[in-house]
Amino acid sequence: MKLLEYIAHGAAGEAEIMVNPSHEVRRVEAGGRLSLVTVHTAAGVSSLEITVGEGAALHLVEFFCGGAVGACRVRQAASSLCDITSVVTGSAEPGYSVGLDGAGAENNLRGAFIAGGAERVRFGLRVSHNVPKCTSNSLVKGVAGGNAVCEFNGLVYVAQDAQQTDARQTSRNIVLGGGARIETKPQLEIYADDVKCSHGATVGQLDDDAILYMRQRGLTEAQARRLQIEGFVRDIVSQAGPLAEALAEELTAKLEKL
């Protein structure tokens, strides 16, 4: 696998690397930093629990395939920052639960899943704004081809006292052909009144106008389709740091097999 080769050559830098972990607990002390890369390639259930202390930063990159089921729970104290990149190529069930427990905590999640053949993906994401003045921004993109069935379940929960919450959650999807299916359920549950929350979901086909445009410049229809899907998912790796290129290559390799 390209990603593991990249990691073996040091692409993950200082990050702690876990391949097929089972149950892991980490704590980032106040003001500290942790960079973590997990690679899930085998069917099996794993869990990851991370507490991010006050003013601390967590940078998490996760990769899933091969039927892996992973539950990731992150609790963030005041003024902490957590960036998560989650890339799924093939059957998998990643599930994220983020608790924003201290004012000024910020969470950014970027996810992408691609499934083909008879693969199944369930992507779960729950972001709980438990206290005021926290920010969350999630964008998850999905591509399904063949007879793949995918599901995105998103929830933004804003507690009664969590005023001045700024929460965004977006699910964007492309379905290729009649056999594939993506079900997306982004939900908001808001009990505070002074909040900025937005959620949105789209499920679409490829953009025919864009394909025609590219063909008019000389690209074949297959090239134009691939380039468009690649463009659609590739921006998801933008916050993956040194592993961005490796993840983008994994996505491209998966697209080529769809």
């Binding site: 953009d207 106008d209 864009a210 025609l212 445009y213 590219m214 410049r217 380039l227 468009q228 690649e230 463009g231 659609f232 998912v233 590739r234 921006d235």
Partner: peptide, 11 residues
């Protein structure tokens, strides 16, 4: 037409 994620140079 706009094509998100595809750079002019690559295209």
């Amino acid at each position: 037409v706009e094509i998100p994620g595809v750079t002019m140079a690559n295209f």
